[in-house]
Design a protein around this nucleic acid. Structure first.
Lengths: 175, 175, 175, 175
DNA sequence: GATGAATGAGCTTTCATTCAT
DNA sequence: GATGAATGAAAGCTCATTCAT
């Protein structure tokens, strides 16, 4: 990938995340990236192709997130790792997750990154810990993750992440 | 409001919720409502005016939701009422809440309907019940509400709401 | 059809005929028609839709041309009528036929107006007149018609149509 | 001429003939030729330069066609040779003539290859054979040639060229 | 000679909005 | 109140052409 391609993807991610896919013109992206508008189409074919390229990039980011889970066996460690996730989104990834969540609400088409594997791992953990209704627990966990992501991505820094995570872990008796 | 105005608002709500504000053209709305495009502008001045009208309608819906809380004093009853809320969204309101949540991710401008009053009420309840960190508890509750709304509005009917709500209430020792 | 639609179709026909479909921009058409560019798309959906509308108009023109043939029975009268056709293209239809012939060379898609009926009528006439190879005669006739159209449409008025038609009829003994 | 130049010219000829000059992008030509787009401009300067190069190639092809005529004196031989021409277009030249005829309809600019010499030769032949209106006969011959080319180039192989040519020669009492 | 990244003008098309009826 | 023709700005996209490598 050339330097300009990277610039385009970066600007597009930022703008899509902030103003939405339909709310962002290719003209705006090109200007933000310091690039001619035509170049966007030469490299990504479409405005949608641009979005796809961003999502493809994100897919590998997500994989990095999830892979450590695979090897864990201790159920408490598993739950602790899962719950911590949204609290560990850092500056550089912030924009990507914001876009991903925003897209969720618009087209199922872009629900491409799947959390199913993670949720299955969680269900096993709840079973191991002998929760009475593991299925319901998984739903609640999913809600907590989506909710944490929502609050963190939309009103970051207006509350103490450390304290919140601690209280949350306490609810599941995770040290 | 005339019948045609109602039709327009209904179609707009549906389309905005599904395809986003910028993703929906006034032409599409007019066709969905079975109305001439010009009429939209006669009644609502703007595309944005349309959105405002929808939000105004929603505001009163929200008030209906929240008002019973005002009179409650028993902290457990308060928490129980708050937690139940997203689980009680019914068919007819579904589209509106979907739109409201989708807009959250797009423009802060439309974060108009505020949950602050409710969250303060919750904080008082947590204090009354002598939770060790009421502030953190409120954040967690907010996450749960946002998360529950997300899951319910986006993948409705793929899980048991009754069981989930029950397990959730158990977490807070609410009967 | 409104006055502006007619204007658009007229300008488009003229420009397509002179500079080709791909060689003519919708901007140019709009300006020639004294109309906003958007209007073209509102009425005809596409640039291609514009072409289709022109062809549809032409179809009825062609039908007018061919229908008198249907009732003729005298073979000489039939051949005479057919041979005369390209020589009777008048000013108002000139542009349309020019476009039609130009399109022939580019996409079979637009070979929509069919001369087959006319050629069958001719074949019957050649049989009636006991020509030795009626099939070959039909091909030659088709060539003559295409050729006459080519010469008339592309270098009109540089030769005597009357004398040429006379000499041509003489070749078929059509007084 | 290098191999790549030949490839470019060949692809351009083919595409121009099939989809028209304006209907063919340099990008498409480059891909068809298996060559970078830039190379086209290095070798031919312009898109128009490409067309000119094709026409120059064609000019010598045409000369080959016409030169035998120069030395003929017998009028019947002359007419026979002229009439036979379109029927002798072979596979390898097909595309070129198709392009040439298609261009006729698009821009007079490209009426570059002239048949005038040939038509003068024909007029002399008609005079020698004491046709009553040699001028009109030349026009008719021109029509026949254009028409034969049209039919042969656009619906090749759907009829017997041998029989058609025979019937045609019979019309002029050529053996 | 050859590539392919890059450009900018121009193209087709969409869209919110206006206005005469 | 209601329509639908009409607009003009801006959107997404294509294209011939240039240039560094």
């Amino acid at each position: 990938m050339t330097e300009k391609q990277i610039k385009i993807l970066g600007s597009a991610l930022e703008l899509f995340a902030e103003e939405g896919f339909h709310g962002t013109s290719t003209n705006k992206i090109a200007k933000a990236a310091g690039v001619s508008e035509g170049l966007i189409f030469r490299h990504f074919k479409n405005k949608e192709g641009l979005l796809n390229a961003i999502m493809a990039q994100g897919q590998s980011l997500a994989t990095t997130y999830f892979s450590p889970l695979m090897e864990m066996t201790d159920p408490k460690e598993v739950l602790s790792a899962i719950i911590s996730m949204p609290f560990q989104i850092d500056e550089s990834e912030h924009k990507f997750w914001r876009l991903l969540y925003a897209l969720k609400w618009q087209q199922q088409k872009y629900n491409s990154i799947s959390f199913d594997f993670m949720l299955e791992k969680a269900q096993q953990a709840f079973k191991d810990l002998e929760y009475s209704d593991p299925k319901a627990e998984v739903i609640i966990l999913e809600m907590l993750l989506d909710g944490a992501a929502t609050v963190i991505l939309l009103k970051d820094e207006q509350f103490s992440k450390v304290k919140t995570l601690k209280a949350l872990k306490a609810k599941y008796n995770l040290d």
